[in-house]
Simulated assay, not measured.
Amino acid sequence: MKAPFGFGTAPLGILPDLVDAQAAQRCLERAEELGIRYFDTAPFYGAGLAEERLGAFLAGRDPAGLVLSTKVGRSVVPGGTTVFDFGRDAVRRQLEESLRRLGTDRIDIVYLHDPDDHWESAIDEAWPALAELRASGVVGAVGAGMNQTAMLHRFVRETDMDVMLLANRYTLLQQYEADELFAACAERGVRVVLGAVLNGGILATGAVPGAHFLYRPAPPDVLERVARIEAVGFRHGVPLVAAALQFAAAHPQAASVLVGAKSAEELERNLAAAARPIPAAFWAELVELGLVGADRALPA
């Protein structure tokens, strides 16, 4: 898989601002029209609602040329309670339910979903179960998706997983946390998908009152750094979101960058930003000001 941008379906299933079914379908259709071929989902997103909506979109379509990924280990039960279960039987059951919602008998990628506090069951039960499903052809590739690098690094070293989904840890604001993970993935031939490259919102909204960083109100030092990047962007005519998306996609280990959206219009804006020409002088000034590392991979 090498797709510069994929579509993350979380916004199509998660409350409180639930997207209605028609808008969700239009968003998925527009993603396909705009050339997106990788769609990521999870049973956790709306207790299966995002998977159901992706399944409705896929119904009657030829899946050839599309890459689909979902996750196991983290789910939501009635009442909104989050449940983590990385046991062998639970993983198989969850995947069966996901395949039913998606309307398919095979999935390209399955990730262990946030096993941060469940290393032993994830490595001893969930991973062997997914490896067996990969060997049988039900699953094309296996990986783990997390908001941290240390455990992903362990999975790379201790298994033969195929792909890691790293969220929030390689962005315009967090440029160095993933270096060891990237190096290990390059050595072992493991692909990397990047998620949440807007850091929970602030790299889309900018340094405005109430801006969120890592899903919490942004601290003063982050607001100040973002404001400085925005000021450079203003001088060069570069929107912040364009810089953030293109910076993440430029990393040589990034097989894909997930972009989420609640509407076709929002998706269009994000992808237009991702394709917007950015002058080399913009990146040069960020490097000069110490806002981007001189050793970072930059968009051509």
Rank of each mutant, 00 (worst) to 15 (best):
E96F: 01
R188W: 12
H236K: 00
P43D: 03
R100L: 06
G46A: 12
G87L: 04
E285G: 01
V91D: 07
G60P: 04
A264F: 11
P217C: 09
G260M: 01
V72N: 01
L166A: 12
S256R: 04
S98Q: 00
A280L: 02
L198N: 05
V139K: 07
L18S: 05
M151I: 14
H153R: 15
F7E: 15
Y215T: 05
P277S: 05
L66R: 15
D17L: 14
G55R: 14
V77W: 06
A273V: 04
V77N: 05
L267A: 01
A186P: 11
L165A: 07
S69P: 02
P63Q: 11
G55W: 02
P115F: 00
R188L: 11
R100P: 01
L198Y: 11
R169V: 07
A255Y: 12
L12A: 02
Q148G: 12
R74A: 10
M146K: 10
D85A: 01
I36Y: 06
L68C: 04
E268S: 13
R101T: 11
P63Y: 12
L258D: 05
E268Q: 13
P128D: 10
D114F: 08
A24F: 03
A186G: 15
F39Y: 15
Y38S: 12
V192D: 07
E125D: 11
G103W: 06
V19K: 01
F234G: 09
P209W: 00
D40K: 13
D116S: 14
A3G: 14
V190F: 00
G79F: 00
R154V: 10
D114Q: 05
V91T: 12
G200I: 10
A231V: 07
V67G: 07
C27P: 08
V193T: 15
R188A: 15
F234H: 13
F84G: 11
A281W: 02
G65K: 08
D40G: 12
S256G: 06
A211N: 03
A275C: 02
P43E: 05
R169L: 09
V222Y: 12
E177P: 04
M164P: 08
E224P: 05
A294Q: 08
P299W: 03
L172H: 03
L102H: 08
R101C: 07
A297K: 14
I107Y: 15
F213L: 11
D40R: 13
A178D: 00
A3S: 15
T81H: 12
F247T: 02
R74N: 03
E180H: 10
Y111S: 10
L99H: 04
A250Q: 03
E51R: 00
L112E: 09
M146G: 05
V77A: 10
G233V: 06
L172M: 08
V192R: 02
L95V: 03
M1Q: 05
N270K: 03
A196V: 04
I107P: 09
P277V: 02
Y176R: 13
L289M: 04
V197L: 02
V19Y: 12
G293V: 06
A243M: 03
V139C: 09
